[in-house]
Design a protein around this nucleic acid. Structure first.
Lengths: 113, 113
DNA sequence: TAAACATACATAAAATCCTTAGGTATACCT
DNA sequence: AGGTATACCTAAGGATTTTATGTATGTTTA
C-alpha cells in the first residue's frame, strides 16, 4: 500500500471485511473500493493485494470463481465459513489494537473522548 | 512486538509519543511503560526496540545521554526539535490511519459511533 | 490510428519491520 | 549457586509490503 506504512498487517483484515459486506468481489474491484471509501487516500498496490488474496485462498478462507465480463477474465472471491470466522477474529484483533493505541497515545483521555 | 502483528509501523510513533510525555526515558523503561499502559497486553521486544531507537537517533530525532544508576549503565533518550516535529507528523498519520480504518471497517457507523 | 489510459490478472527482487534467539553484564533474592 | 530482574546489544530469519515489470483487452483522446 502506498502512503501509509501503518497499514502493514491490516490488509487481510480489510479484504475479509469487504468480502463480508459485498458477498463476492474481484481483485481490481477491491482496490477501487478501498480508494473510494477512503477518498483516494489509501491505495492498495497490486503487488500487495494479489499475494494476499492467494494466501487467504490457500489458507482456506476464500473460494474462487472465474467469470468472463466484457471479454476480460475476473476472479471473484468469496468467504468460506472458515473465512467468516477468521474475519471475526481479525476484526477483534483490530479493535484491540485501536484500543491499545488509545491507551498509549491518549492516556489522559477516555476511550471515546 | 509480541502478540499483535498490526503494530507494524507504529513502534516509532509510540516511542516518540512516550518521549514527549516523559521528557527522557531509557530503553528498558519504555518496554515497561508500554506493558503497564496496556495492562500487559502489548510487549515490545528488545529486538524491535533497540534498532528502532538507533534509527530514530540516526535520523536526528533523539539525543542520547548516558547515566550510571545502581552501577548499571542507562541510555536516556530525549526528543530533538526535529523529533518533536516528527512526533507531530507521526501522530497525524496515525489519526488518519485510524479514521481510514473506520471508513473501511465501520462504513455504516459515524466515526464516533 | 497510434498513443494513452483503464481494466484485470500476475510475479519477482528488494526493502522494511518484526520475531526469535542469542550474547554481555550487574544486582538482588533464595 | 541459580534464578529473576535490570540494562544494553546484534544477527538470522520470517512476514509483508514496495517497486518494477509483464501480459492482455477495451476505451478514449490527440
Amino acid at each position: 500500500m502506498a502512503n501509509n506504512k501503518l497499514y502493514k498487517g491490516s490488509l487481510s483484515t480489510i479484504i475479509l471485511k469487504l468480502l463480508e459486506e459485498n458477498d463476492r468481489m474481484y481483485g481490481y474491484e477491491i482496490t477501487q473500493k478501498v480508494k473510494e471509501l477512503t477518498a483516494g487516500e489509501l491505495i492498495i498496490t497490486e503487488g500487495a493485494l494479489y499475494p494476499a488474496l492467494h494466501k487467504l485462498e490457500g489458507d482456506g478462507y476464500l473460494t474462487v470463481e472465474y467469470q468472463l465480463v466484457n471479454n476480460r477474465q475476473r476472479k471473484y472471491y468469496a468467504l468460506t465459513p472458515d473465512g467468516k470466522k477468521e474475519k471475526a477474529a481479525k476484526m477483534e484483533e483490530l479493535e484491540r489494537f485501536v484500543q491499545q493505541m488509545q491507551f498509549l497515545l491518549h492516556p489522559k483521555k477516555s476511550i471515546d473522548g
